Computed example of a mutant assay.
Amino acid sequence: MGYVGGVWRLLQGGEPLGGIVVDDADFPWLHGRFVPTEAFARVRPWFDEYLDLLEAEQFERFDDCYDRIAASLSLVSPSGPVPEFLLHVRDTRAWFRWSDTPFDPA
């Protein structure tokens, strides 16, 4: 599957929060322009908080913070929903990795 040019959608309970137009694929990460909907404003603080924790190397708090995103949001590839993902959003950029099987909980 070619990734560049594909549009991935971020949803919360079926409500669109934004789209990611992939413009770079650096396995296992995909990078792209993030186009939020107005509804993304509700969850933007979640992304800001966990990126701040990550940059401060507060990894134990990062996991708890990111769990809220993983439990509440879904990511849909051009070919359908993905069961597992790690998504970063900063301003108009997003980068993420995904798996077609759930991540190992360990």
Rank of each mutant, 00 (worst) to 15 (best):
R90G: 00
R93G: 00
H88P: 00
P45Y: 15
A94E: 07
R68N: 02
R68F: 01
D24A: 12
G80I: 09
S99A: 05
W29N: 05
A25Y: 11
L87V: 08
F85Q: 08
E60Y: 11
P28V: 11
L73A: 08
S77N: 12
V76M: 06
D104N: 15
G6L: 08
A94H: 06
L30R: 06
R93D: 09
L73E: 05
F96G: 05
F47E: 02
Y3R: 15
F62A: 02
W95N: 05
F62I: 00
L11T: 13
R42W: 01
E15A: 13
L75Y: 03
S72R: 13
D64N: 01
P81R: 14
A106Y: 09
D24V: 03
E60H: 13
Y66I: 09
Y50A: 06
S74L: 05
D24G: 01
L75D: 10
R44Y: 03
E60G: 08
L87P: 05
G2P: 09
S74Q: 14
V82M: 03
L17S: 00
G6M: 07
P81G: 12
G2R: 14
P105D: 09
I20P: 00
A94I: 10
V35H: 00
P105E: 04
R61K: 14
S79R: 14
Q12Y: 07
P16F: 11
R90P: 00
C65E: 09
P16E: 15
Y50M: 12
R33I: 10
D91K: 15
P81T: 08
G18E: 01
D67R: 15
A41N: 04
S74K: 11
F47Q: 08
V22A: 04
D91R: 05
R61P: 01
P78L: 11
V21Y: 08
D63P: 00
P36V: 01
T92S: 13
A70S: 10
R61I: 01
P16L: 15
W46F: 11
P83N: 04
V43A: 05
A25Q: 09
P78M: 11
D64A: 14
E49L: 11
I69R: 01
R93I: 13
P45E: 07
W95E: 10
R9Y: 05
V43H: 03
S72E: 12
